[in-house]
């Protein structure tokens, strides 16, 4: 029983990261109808930037917000410079450019910081939580920071005019322009937010998986799985899906398939859900008109 609880809690901690990635993926999907295959590599690159700042002697809690801001700006620039001009280009062009970004970030990180793994410090003390060893302090911290961030994002979209405008621009760009919303800036803002959320996920997971250019590939796959399970049309669903696949991954790993096939588990989840319930658990069914 204690083992089960341990696995579930640590699954929730991983799930927090998947939830962030899933949310970032869904935000971009809702805005431009594309999957950001480079989401993980962008987060990895942000994490390297954070690592570099810490190498220069800056403390974690200063690095954290600075890195989030830099990532936000980076996301805005990527949208403006790279995706703005091909906004009306066909699907394949988009997939190609996402893959190109993937390779560029992966390769540049390796070139600048080398492919050797690096330890990334956790901001949380290494002691037991309330005298139990059910969950590590860092894992608890991951869940905590993620939840705070998710609540902030919810409040932003629910209650601020810009948040409302971003939702409107994604749902109905033509009408959005007719009330004076600059849809292209809303898109850039969405990219900035997605990049910032990714940076948070990267900085939180790096202490657990070590920092290296390929660290986010598996996590991105689980983020996609979370987004698909929760429903690509529902940001809240994607977050729930992220937590869900985190727990499922850990329990399946502990009791069924072992740790060797975790990515295969994600593959089965993604293909299975897309086939059997394409709208996910919480999404709407989208009817394609011909």
């Amino acid at each position: 029983m204690e083992y089960f609880l341990q696995q579930t809690l640590s699954g929730l901690a991983n799930g927090a990261i998947y939830a962030c990635v899933a949310l970032a993926v869904v935000m971009i999907y809702q805005a431009i109808d594309h999957f950001n295959f480079a989401q993980g590599e962008m987060a990895m690159f942000s994490t390297f930037i954070a690592w570099q700042m810490m190498q220069w002697g800056m403390p974690f809690w200063l690095v954290f917000p600075v890195c989030v801001v830099i990532s936000f700006a980076g996301g805005v620039v990527i949208e403006r410079v790279i995706f703005g001009p091909i906004h009306n280009a066909p699907v394949l062009s988009h997939v190609i450019v996402f893959i190109a970004l993937f390779s560029i970030f992966n390769s540049l990180a390796g070139f600048i910081w080398e492919f050797t793994i690096k330890p990334f410090p956790s901001p949380f003390p290494e002691k037991d939580v309330l005298g139990t060893n059910l969950i590590a302090m860092h894992e608890l911290g991951m869940i905590g920071i993620t939840l705070v961030m998710l609540v902030m994002i919810y409040l932003f979209f629910r209650f601020t005019p810009i948040g409302l405008a971003m939702r409107a621009a994604a749902a109905n760009p033509v009408s959005a322009r007719l009330v004076g919303i600059s849809v292209k800036w809303m898109l850039s803002l969405g990219w900035g937010l997605a990049a910032a959320i990714g940076a948070v996920a990267g900085m939180l997971i790096a202490p657990m998986v070590y920092l290296e250019p390929n660290m986010m590939l598996g996590i991105l796959l689980y983020g996609f799985a979370g987004a698909v399970v929760g429903g690509l049309t529902s940001p809240g669903g994607a977050v729930a899906g992220g937590f869900l696949v985190g727990v499922a991954e850990n329990l399946a790993g502990a009791y069924v398939i072992g740790s060797e096939l975790k990515l295969t588990f994600a593959l089965v989840l993604i293909v299975g859900v897309l086939l059997l319930r394409p709208a996910g658990l919480f999404g709407r069914v989208v009817v394609n008109r011909v």
């Binding site: 749902a171 109905n172 009408s175 007719l178 009330v179």
Partner: peptide, 22 residues
Amino acid sequence: PEGRGTFVRITTEENLRLGAYT
């Protein structure tokens, strides 16, 4: 616009709020 251009997934009042975006 033709077809009314309603933002269908949000409330009536949020629609009006969007109208006052500027």
